[in-house]
Deep mutational scan, measured.
Amino acid sequence: AEKTGIVNVSSSLNVREGASTSSKVIGSLSGNTKVTIVGEEGAFYKIEYKGSHGYVAKEYIKDIKDE
C-alpha cells in the first residue's frame, strides 16, 4: 500500500540513511518534489530514493495520498 506525498520545505529536505536525525544524510530533495512512501518509522517516512530507500522527517511531507 504505497502512498505519495509532496516535500513541503522552502529550500531542501535531507534524505537520511535511517529513521533518525543522527543518521547519515545520503541526499536531499527540493520543495514540491513528489515522493513515494513505502513505510514509516517513528517520526520518519521511508521513501523510494535513487533506486533504493531513504528516510525523511514526516513533518516536512504534505498531501499524503494513497496510490
Score class of each variant (00 low, 15 high):
1 A>I: 07
1 A>W: 09
1 A>K: 06
1 A>T: 07
2 E>W: 14
3 K>Y: 08
3 K>C: 05
4 T>L: 08
4 T>N: 08
6 I>M: 09
6 I>D: 02
7 V>L: 06
7 V>G: 03
8 N>V: 09
8 N>F: 09
8 N>C: 05
9 V>P: 09
10 S>R: 04
11 S>H: 09
11 S>W: 15
11 S>I: 12
12 S>H: 15
12 S>M: 09
13 L>C: 04
14 N>G: 14
14 N>E: 13
14 N>Q: 12
15 V>Y: 02
15 V>L: 04
15 V>K: 00
16 R>K: 14
16 R>P: 00
16 R>V: 08
17 E>K: 05
17 E>N: 14
17 E>H: 06
18 G>P: 01
18 G>Q: 15
18 G>H: 09
19 A>M: 07
20 S>F: 11
21 T>M: 14
21 T>H: 15
21 T>L: 08
22 S>E: 08
22 S>K: 11
22 S>R: 14
23 S>G: 10
23 S>Y: 08
24 K>D: 10
24 K>F: 09
25 V>N: 04
25 V>I: 11
26 I>S: 03
26 I>Y: 03
26 I>D: 00
26 I>C: 04
27 G>N: 02
27 G>D: 03
29 L>F: 04
29 L>M: 04
30 S>F: 09
30 S>C: 06
30 S>T: 12
31 G>A: 12
32 N>R: 07
33 T>L: 06
33 T>A: 11
34 K>E: 08
34 K>Y: 09
34 K>G: 04
35 V>C: 04
35 V>T: 02
36 T>F: 14
36 T>E: 05
36 T>Y: 15
37 I>H: 00
37 I>M: 03
37 I>C: 02
37 I>F: 01
38 V>K: 13
38 V>T: 05
39 G>T: 04
39 G>A: 07
39 G>S: 10
39 G>D: 07
39 G>W: 04
40 E>D: 14
40 E>T: 11
41 E>K: 12
41 E>L: 13
41 E>N: 07
41 E>M: 11
41 E>P: 02
42 G>L: 08
42 G>S: 07
43 A>S: 10
43 A>L: 12
43 A>H: 13
43 A>T: 06
44 F>L: 03
45 Y>T: 01
46 K>S: 03
47 I>S: 00
47 I>L: 02
48 E>C: 04
48 E>H: 14
48 E>V: 13
48 E>A: 10
48 E>P: 08
49 Y>A: 01
49 Y>N: 02
49 Y>S: 01
50 K>L: 10
50 K>Q: 13
50 K>F: 10
50 K>W: 10
50 K>A: 13
51 G>V: 05
51 G>E: 08
52 S>D: 06
52 S>W: 10
52 S>E: 13
52 S>R: 10
54 G>M: 02
54 G>R: 02
55 Y>M: 02
55 Y>R: 00
55 Y>E: 00
56 V>R: 00
56 V>F: 01
56 V>H: 00
56 V>G: 01
57 A>K: 13
57 A>Q: 13
57 A>G: 14
58 K>S: 07
58 K>L: 03
58 K>C: 04
59 E>Q: 09
59 E>N: 07
59 E>F: 14
60 Y>A: 07
60 Y>M: 08
61 I>L: 07
63 D>W: 14
63 D>Y: 11
63 D>M: 15
64 I>R: 04
64 I>D: 11
64 I>Q: 11
64 I>H: 06
65 K>Y: 11
66 D>R: 02
67 E>V: 12
67 E>I: 12
67 E>N: 12
67 E>T: 13
